[in-house]
Simulated scan of single mutants.
Amino acid sequence: MSFSCPLCHARLTRSEKSFTCPQGHQFDMAKEGYVNLLPVQHKRSRDPGDSAEMMQARRAFLDAGHYQPLRDTVAQLLRDNLSTPSAILDIGCGEGYYTALFADVAREKGAETYGLDVSKVAIRAAAKRYSSVTFCVASSHRLPFEDASMDAVVRIYAPCKAEELARVVKPGGWVITVTPGPRHLMELKGLIYDDVRLHAPHSEQLAGFSLQQEQTVAYEMKLKGDEAVALLQMTPFAWRAKPVVWETLAKQDEFCCQTDFSIHCWQREV
């Protein structure tokens, strides 16, 4: 399987150091091993996606194992639902923490694994660490893959148009989504908002897919002060947190915070 050109959608052919389409559009491989398939005209800002600080905070937090139950659960769902896949895609893969385990599952079944994110900083870090995955910088709303090329797509918090998922997933293939459950990070939100509200119940519908399975992964985390700060920094709540919140978290000997993940498994209609 190969990428498709983000400009003309033709198939890209790989040489030693670049990908090229029949129209002559060329995309060079970075020294870290990834390819940038996000043309400037598709960017919404100069450097879209997570910053270096956000990426580093997330890597430190995830490497400590705080979200490992979620990673293990999604990997097991891939293992259970895929028989003889050829390609798996992780959308919004960030620095590759989840993708690396998905790649282990893919190798067991003889499949390739692709990781996609709009953040070049995150993809560069992912490609440096995980050579078994093919990483690209690209838009999740314009997936640079051919029609019906993916056996499974994983989407952990990442946005993506349902039409694009329906286009790239093979008939009978799978989309696994992870979204915040109602009580996700309630204690952290309580430090930032006067009126703490539950996350709205999951209501997503994916045209062309049928919902086959849903489950919740929820548990309490006990975080050190620096870990709590890293958690805040990797969430959208960071933009709303006042200096006193950062200071309070940093001084915590132990900060208890609950997780609540909603996982949904969708199968592409045949």
Rank of each mutant, 00 (worst) to 15 (best):
F3P: 09
S4E: 03
L7D: 12
C8Q: 08
C8P: 07
A10H: 14
L12A: 08
S15Q: 08
K17Q: 14
Q23G: 09
Q23C: 09
Q26G: 02
M29D: 00
M29S: 03
K31I: 14
K31G: 07
G33M: 02
G33V: 00
G33D: 02
V35Q: 06
N36Y: 05
P39G: 08
Q41C: 01
H42W: 05
R46Y: 05
D47C: 05
P48F: 15
G49D: 06
D50K: 02
S51M: 05
E53N: 08
M54F: 02
Q56F: 00
R59T: 11
D63V: 04
D63A: 09
Y67A: 12
Y67C: 13
Y67L: 12
R71D: 04
T73S: 12
L78N: 10
R79Q: 11
L82P: 15
S83Y: 09
S83N: 13
S86M: 09
I88N: 00
D90W: 08
D90S: 10
G96Y: 06
Y97M: 01
T99A: 06
T99Y: 02
L101N: 15
F102M: 11
F102T: 02
F102W: 04
D104L: 00
V105R: 04
R107P: 13
A111C: 10
E112A: 14
T113S: 07
L116H: 04
L116E: 02
V121T: 10
I123H: 03
A125S: 12
S131L: 10
F135T: 06
H141N: 11
H141K: 11
R142S: 12
R142P: 04
P144G: 07
F145Y: 05
S149E: 14
A152T: 10
V154T: 12
R155C: 14
P159I: 06
P159W: 03
P159T: 11
K161D: 14
E163P: 07
E163K: 14
V168L: 10
V168S: 14
V169S: 15
G173S: 08
G173L: 08
W174V: 12
T177H: 03
T177F: 00
V178Q: 06
T179K: 12
H184Y: 11
M186N: 11
E187H: 13
E187G: 07
L188H: 15
G190M: 02
G190C: 01
L191M: 13
D194C: 00
R197N: 12
H199Q: 06
H199Y: 15
H202R: 12
H202W: 09
A207Y: 03
F209M: 04
Q212A: 12
Q212C: 13
Q213W: 11
T216M: 14
T216E: 13
V217D: 07
V217C: 07
A218Y: 04
A218E: 05
E220G: 10
E220R: 14
D226F: 15
E227D: 12
V229H: 01
A230D: 15
L231Q: 00
L232F: 10
L232K: 13
T235V: 09
T235G: 04
P236K: 14
A238I: 01
A241Q: 01
V245K: 09
W246C: 04
T248K: 13
K251E: 13
E254P: 08
E254M: 07
F255I: 00
C257W: 02
D260Y: 02
C265N: 12
C265F: 06
R268W: 03
E269M: 12
